[in-house]
Design a protein around this nucleic acid. Sequence first.
DNA 1: GTGATTAAGTGATCTAATCACTCCATCGCC
DNA 2: GGCGATGGAGTGATTAGATCACTTAATCAC
Lengths: 240, 240
Amino acid sequence: MEGDGVVTAGEARRTLADELAGGVVQLIRERRLEPGAQMDTVRSMAERFAVAVPTMREALRRLEAMGVVILRHGSGVYVGENVGRSVLPNPHGPLLTSESLVDLLRARSTIEPPIAAMGATVRDPGGVERITETLREAERCLLERNERLWVVNLDFHRAVAQASGNTVLAEVVDSIVLVHGHEQREILRLHGDEDVDFAEHQRIARAVLDGDADEAYRASKEHLDNVIEAIRSRRPDLRQ
Amino acid sequence: MEGDGVVTAGEARRTLADELAGGVVQLIRERRLEPGAQMDTVRSMAERFAVAVPTMREALRRLEAMGVVILRHGSGVYVGENVGRSVLPNPHGPLLTSESLVDLLRARSTIEPPIAAMGATVRDPGGVERITETLREAERCLLERNERLWVVNLDFHRAVAQASGNTVLAEVVDSIVLVHGHEQREILRLHGDEDVDFAEHQRIARAVLDGDADEAYRASKEHLDNVIEAIRSRRPDLRQ
DNA sequence: GTGATTAAGTGATCTAATCACTCCATCGCC
DNA sequence: GGCGATGGAGTGATTAGATCACTTAATCAC
């Protein structure tokens, strides 16, 4: 993994904290620990690896940043969800600008349709189930005028990607949907049309569940392009 | 940014290190620091934020994990390339398995073609230039029988994504190309056909440079499917 | 059975010191 | 004058040890 993943201005030499992070990940693998599983304490890991506690902590902070471990104050160290993830959103990345919002939506409009088509072809059971759940929940939110709708709507897109049965694609969609997630939800809440969205989601879901890849592609593409257009018409500054 | 980005088994409470990481990023933004720019020292940042040095270091380790800063021993703290990135590969993610390799290649085969088509439509100058460079360099490596060819070949794919002029797409392709980068290169080196690859890359490049989106899509799709097939025929364990 | 209290365990942060590396200025030699 | 070596200052890296803050489980009282 040397030099891979992070392309930097000048490669810093590999530190003890870096090595330790690798050691912790190795430990997780050897023990086949699942997300949520408790690990050794910071102090016992420091002993195991024969380093000082603050040094061990530095390594764990690295892993915490990637969501590979969770440090729970007073409780212990736990394996995080992202231990099984290859692609992640960067919580310390750039702020959303009008330009980057358009980029983001355009990116989604480019890659989500073929992924939806693949979802229709593969129809992974977990993904299919989640599509059904998120649709049901969206309907509930719509009736109750619950603002959680915008969270659920983004989850719907993740569910469609999950139906592709392809972990990498699911993670990619996860990442682009989750990155600037708060802002995305706000913009959609202000400028989206919840009824149109729901109807379009239903159309996508039907196509996926029917195994109609072409229709899934079209439905997904039209939906996302409609979102872009709706936001553009209400936000002229986004016109590009 | 609360709760966004990292979906974890149970949300740990926000720590001082977490807050400090945000503070450092804020500093980078306020000063409009570019990647490579030197920041304040660890000690002076600890003073600025009124915390102890080890605590400041924990925060910086978080940011270092994301490639947002680089700590250079004896030199100082520098802004990293990933300060402007929203989507990242996880250097501490899962190991590549036969199954996940197929997933990864399939994922690439699904999303790179529409991105290549978009590259042909937009033809971002920086991306076009980089396509030309990487092709030239690949040709050089081919003549010299330089194993760097496999690095350059993956860079070619990144260049095509850059030609789309869409930052998010470029980052997504970056991430899936770079994740397990070493393994990808090894597998391709063992089972790939460098001449066929080169010819296919040339075809993709020509389509992008000619602004032929349909051809770019087809060329990209066929190339990646050929890669998958080539690897499959030589690695029966990957047959799925 | 439920709620309050206490103790033990564990993470969080601090202080202070020493070690390891980088960078730059100065000096010596050719 | 140019180049290489040396030394000092600055800066990151790691340690040791202490105290504080939180969680969890056990016990006790009602």
